[in-house]
Design a binder for these strands. Structure first.
Lengths: 321, 321
DNA sequence: CGTTCTTACGTGTGTCGTAACGATC
DNA sequence: GATCGTTACGACACACGTAAGAACG
């Protein structure tokens, strides 16, 4: 068995079972790849591919099982070269972060600023996706780290660390009647048209559940993945906004006013994760440290007992109440 | 990077950093292995080995990290080869079981008899060891499956299934005064010299704990890993025996009499385990099935809720009470 | 008839083995 | 001086590329 053969196998299935395209991707000619596959199959002694005449159209049962371990092999190869790079060019390389819009826009800037100061040679890439996509991207090694609140907490193939806690706040244009209501209850929120996140993002599910538990249903007139979009429509007067508290920036959102809603909804925990068997380079781990420090700085760091008990802790005081 | 290079790396560390011996183990000449190591090191760009002059004496920090992933690679190679064999020679190969004496002697025979009928071409190897050794053997792929009660339950790198439950029984020569005591309590057991298992085996720790909890200490005059040894000394009149109930065989132990002690000690759960990322061949999995069926047959099968709650279930009635 | 894979064949790379040299105990 | 490692060199293997042939839509 040779690594080339394994690489050809992977390239084949990742390119729709076209030998030619696999060869192209590997910078080889097609007969070479053909030979790899043939030799691998003959060494294992059992057909790996379903064929239609000469054409390969899929994997056999045996082929499917082999594929999983073949990917494992190449993952280990990638880990080893990553270790090499880690010692050769300590501060050079790429940091690929998969995250959601809210993190990328409101949390990461401060952390990445400090990170880039420390590692000016590292190219930081931010990829966005839904939490479910982020899991896939992490497992496929398309990103090094994933940061989000949903989906990565208890995946068996991910290692995740709780980072910080957040809750929601209400935003509305200055002078909006809801701002004078006191106290603000779930019932109050239901009296006004609401703008918030779409399902699958930024705790929308927990939000809806909180209303459902007491038999209420908010009038959500618009939902978006993107806090900036929500703010825009709130400014337009389309409704009140319920957003992640981190996403309210008094210095930029002077035309809006916010109210803390942490008494109404459960706290969310944002986590940072990487694939379980992946070698995390030093500067990547350093980024994780910086991220945790940033959480400390905000006073929102999740301490491990907190994460387990879900207790409520310190809250910042950016809300004018 | 080439598989040869990885193999040479592993062989080197597994042979005390002697290039010559590594080469010998790989059926290569020494300069070949030297070249593998040199090329690997130069490709990664960082020293992997600590040297004393020309001699290799250990791994650098980077080398140590690489080694772990190198082993992972070869493990995947072994898995792929195993898949091949599984489809080529369905019913041929080896089944290497690591277990303790009690299992090998009293539980496995019945299961292996049925297994060998179904797979006459499979060579079954039984290796014995302490539970801690069994864990190491399983992780080092020296055995395919491990069967024991201690140590394998919650190891993160093992997959283990609860199989059957057992408890202890008292054995003594016919006519021994303890046999007429009723009921038998922990206190009664402490009145006689006792013979049982050594620590680390067959639930000895739980046994001692049960006595300690009520402030008692049995007079253990002899302990052994081996139930047969215990029986022998019980026959000699050296004391009463406390053994796993499965190990009492009325048909062969006619000169001894037994009493159930399951009201005095917690139930133990014997588990069957394999390394987490190991490909388990079909006939090996079939053996696991047979093992579980055997547990069913004895009426001792651990149902999952049982395993979690530790509740007591059906007990066989081999004891003359 | 174009696309796709296989077969056939030559070339060049590179891996291994032999042999000589150097260092370390 | 014996053991263990490296360097040097030659032979063989083999992996890749080119080119031509066969099956499929």
């Amino acid at each position: 068995m040779e690594l080339r053969q394994i690489r050809s196998l992977i390239a084949l299935v990742d390119h729709g079972f076209s030998v030619s395209r696999a060869a192209q991707a590997l910078h080889l000619v097609q007969p070479a790849v053909s030979q790899h596959l043939r030799l691998l199959e003959s060494e294992l002694g059992t057909p790996l591919f379903r064929r239609n005449g000469k054409r390969l159209v899929g994997l056999t049962e045996a082929g499917g099982k082999v594929l999983a371990h073949a990917r494992g092999m190449l993952a280990e190869v990638a880990n080893i070269v990553a270790i090499g790079r880690d010692y050769v060019e300590e501060g050079r390389g790429a940091l690929r972060i998969g995250t959601t819009h809210t993190q990328a826009r409101y949390v990461l800037p401060a952390v990445l600023h400090r990170f880039s100061d420390a590692y000016p040679e590292v190219e930081v890439q931010i990829l966005q996706g839904t939490p479910a996509q982020l899991v896939d991207m992490t497992l496929a090694d398309q990103v090094d780290l994933a940061i989000c609140t949903e989906a990565i907490g208890d995946h068996p193939l991910l290692v995740s660390l709780p980072s910080y806690r957040w809750n929601r706040c209400l935003i509305a244009p200055r002078g909006h009647p809801v701002l004078s209501r006191q106290p603000i209850s779930l019932g109050v929120l239901c009296e006004y048209p609401m703008i918030t996140y779409v399902f699958g993002f930024t705790g929308r599910r927990t939000l809806s559940t909180s209303f459902a538990k007491v038999g209420l249903r908010p009038k959500v007139v618009l939902s978006a993945v993107d806090t900036d979009v929500i703010k825009t429509y709130v400014r337009e007067g389309m409704g009140i906004g319920v957003i992640a508290d981190l996403a309210f920036q008094p210095e930029h959102d002077g035309d809006l006013e916010a109210r803390d809603l942490s008494h109404l909804f459960p706290w969310e925990v944002t986590r940072i994760a990487h694939a379980k068997d992946k070698y995390v380079r030093r500067f990547q781990r350093r980024f994780m440290d910086l991220f945790q420090q940033h959480a400390d700085h905000l006073g929102r760091r999740v301490r491990i007992p907190d994460a387990l008990t879900g207790g409520s802790g310190a809250v910042d005081n950016r809300f004018g109440q």
